[in-house]
Amino acid sequence: MMLVIAALFVWAIGWGINIWIARQKPGRWQSIVSAAIFGITLILMWELIVRGLEVSPVILPPPSMIFHAFVTNKMTLLLDFYQTFVWGALTGYAIGCSAAFLTALAIDRSDFLKRGLLPVGNFVAALPIIGMAPILVMWFGFGWESKAAVVVIMIFFPMLVNTVQGLSATDSIQNDMMRTYSATYWQSMFKMRLIAAAPFIFNGLKISSTLALIGAIVAEFFGSPIFGMGFRISTGAGRLELDLVWAEIVVAAIAGSAFYGLVALGERAATFWHPSMRKQR
């Protein structure tokens, strides 16, 4: 009981500090510090309440136990990460994004194809494509190939739609100017249209980066070798090894946000000229 009261006390302190921070002069540090305090408060409360109420670790393990599982199972987690993220998600991401990009370039010259493919692409992008996973696992086997295939299918249409939209982002005045310079199709493509399309392309890349990891993990629920993040999560939950499952989720969270962060950094470097990237006042 003492621990639960301590948890409430921690909450009060954390919240008090955050309210105090919110009253200070606004600055860049404010939100970062505030978010960090909130996160630490939550983890401390989790630990104290789980221990205080003696919640069984098969329902909710305390953070210290998850950290312990994370450290002791480093090699397992690394193997799973390698199988699911590097082989499944990244391969699929590379193939899917480049296939969609090349398709977009191919259909760019035909107005007819654009009109036909865009509504179909938009429709498919809203469907629960993850349901294709069992079929692809049957076709490509239990290995990482089937996971990459799921990722390719999941990200193809969002990426295609975004790239096609980006390629039509230049307006007729700009196109006319390139014609005045008697630029060829490829010259105007590389020197103007691809650059103007970059914000849209990066939007597609960012959406795809989150979808890729989800696709690779969920596809493993349908069948996988005896390692992989999705495999570990589904069997670990079944065997009530929840500390290991949580450790795997921590890995997935870190991998997912790092991947997204890298793409976002690339976007910052490539589209520094775009108004949304300029320094906020």
Binding site: I217, G230, I249, A252, A253, G256
Partner: peptide
Amino acid sequence: QTIPILAL
């Protein structure tokens, strides 16, 4: 939004 919450 950037982490695969579906894994939970």
